[in-house]
Design a protein around this nucleic acid. Structure first.
Length: 128
DNA sequence: CCTATGACAGACA
DNA sequence: GTGTCTGCCATAG
């Protein structure tokens, strides 16, 4: 997979993903924003899709902005659900996770705000 | 350069 | 809540 040197964005994204603590989750958009590319959620998706297990990343801690597991049944869904549950993350039917309770807050104090606001704040915290 | 793909996200009906 | 449409981005051919 990793054909060779990775782009700065890819490296950053992976660094961010590795920073997600146990028992917490982050959204693709959040990772992209923290990696310095707000809106590059699909880029993050591509990264995990092409090199998740191989990169030794806690890929299971990355879910979509709707608080759900994006992997399809039989394509990793159960595995991700299992890993999250093992860390104490409550995964409801349909692979739903309550972002208000489990979304990773790089600094904290952003709970209750909208996803966009949290992601934006994450970017600011990163800038300073 | 251009098209296609993907574990996305937001807006809107 | 659901379904659809559009915009994003990185990477592969």
């Amino acid at each position: 997979m990793d054909t060779r040197r990775e782009s700065p964005f890819t490296r950053e994204a992976k660094r961010i993903i590795r920073a997600i603590p146990r028992g917490r989750v982050a959204t693709y958009g959040q990772v992209a924003a923290l990696a310095g590319r707000p809106g590059a959620a699909r880029g993050v998706a591509w990264i995990l899709h092409s090199s998740s297990a191989a990169a030794a990343l806690p890929w299971h801690r990355v879910i979509n902005g709707r608080g759900g597991i994006s992997l399809g049944r039989g394509r990793g869904f159960e595995e991700q659900r299992k890993r999250l549950a093992a860390e104490g993350v409550a995964v409801g039917r349909g692979g739903r996770v309550d972002l208000r309770r489990f979304q990773w807050e790089p600094k904290n104090g952003t709970a209750g705000l909208s996803r966009g606001a949290r992601d934006f704040i994450g970017v600011l915290l990163r800038e300073e």
